[in-house]
Amino acid sequence: MSDKKEEGTVEEPLDLIRLSLDERIFVKMRQDRELKGKLHAYDQHLNMILSDVEETIKVVEKDEETDEEIVKSIKRNIKMLFIRGDGVILINF
């Protein structure tokens, strides 16, 4: 390992996140929530700030008559959002 680290090198997962600053990313969260937005800040706990966020929540509803399960997607848009890292499952670039 060399002492001088280039800004662009990727050695650890967090390096990949650093290179995605100012880029749009996809975040899968617990509770069947998904986020798409532009990354502006992160820390080692995966706390993040995203802008122009689109959140999709998947809700399973049971049809009272047929007993069938229907998966519904609910979408909403949020201008600027802080996300607590403990809810994050994965990040896609």
Partner: peptide, 22 residues
Amino acid sequence: VVRYVHLPAEDVDVETLQDHSR
């Protein structure tokens, strides 16, 4: 217990945040 915090976009300086993250 926080899931999200909705922030006032006009008060968030994204350039500074990105610099601080790096």
